[in-house]
Design a protein around this nucleic acid. Structure first.
Lengths: 106, 106
DNA sequence: TCCGTTGCTACATTTATCGTAGCAGTACGC
DNA sequence: GCGTACTGCTACGATAAATGTAGCAACGGA
């Protein structure tokens, strides 16, 4: 698998359109979900895994690394992952999605 | 590859938490991008492909099918894909992402 | 009829994700 | 000391998804 996410290798980041890089990063599996699960309080890697329906630690770890490099998530010195100030802003950006989803319901 | 997206097979859709199903659907590759590219005007499948950096038609077609089943995208009778009313609401939900991305810039 | 477009598909290759197991490090109580 | 139970994190084979190229049938003009 090599060392994915070696700073800046987000698809679309070369286009000079940050929105593309952001959409690509958030469009990877579990990215949105991770941000969502961390929206209220920091979680340990294990608790986060539980919250994410026992997703494989491989991807979670990869996503966490990417989200950390993007500056959205940080690892607290006492352990546990939490949102940065930037990450919290991002999270609030798509918080209305919750209400929309309830109305959608499919 | 079989016929993915046979109505309702979105990860998390069985949990009764529509937000999870939505996050899963939007967390698939090119989903967010497609909605984004359609935000202003309908595009033909070819134009959409061009807008999405020549992504492979296989995935685009798969995502379009999913997004259509979800009720966000529709195929106009004159050809060309466009957002439904619901899709337009969804798109506006994460429109503030644009401004955020510009501020982020990594 | 020929040309160019439409939406859409086949298929072999590459990449991402899954699932299970396990690592080293840091505390705890005993 | 010793075991136990956490932490973040990784290896690796199996499986699923995405890529890239090519091409289909259908429709509409010239």
């Amino acid at each position: 698998m090599a060392k994915q996410a070696a700073s800046g290798n987000v698809r679309g980041s070369r286009t000079g359109r940050p929105i593309m890089a952001l959409l690509d990063l958030l469009g990877r599996r579990w990215s949105l979900r991770i941000l969502w699960e961390l929206r209220e309080e920091p979680l340990t890697s294990r608790a986060l895994r539980t919250a994410c329906d026992e997703a494989s630690p491989t991807v979670l770890q990869a996503r966490l690394t990417e989200l950390r490099e993007a500056g959205f998530v940080e690892l607290g010195d006492g352990g546990g992952y939490g949102l940065t100030t930037l990450g919290r802003e991002l999270c609030e950006t798509f918080m209305p999605l919750h209400r929309f989803a309830e109305r959608w319901r499919r």
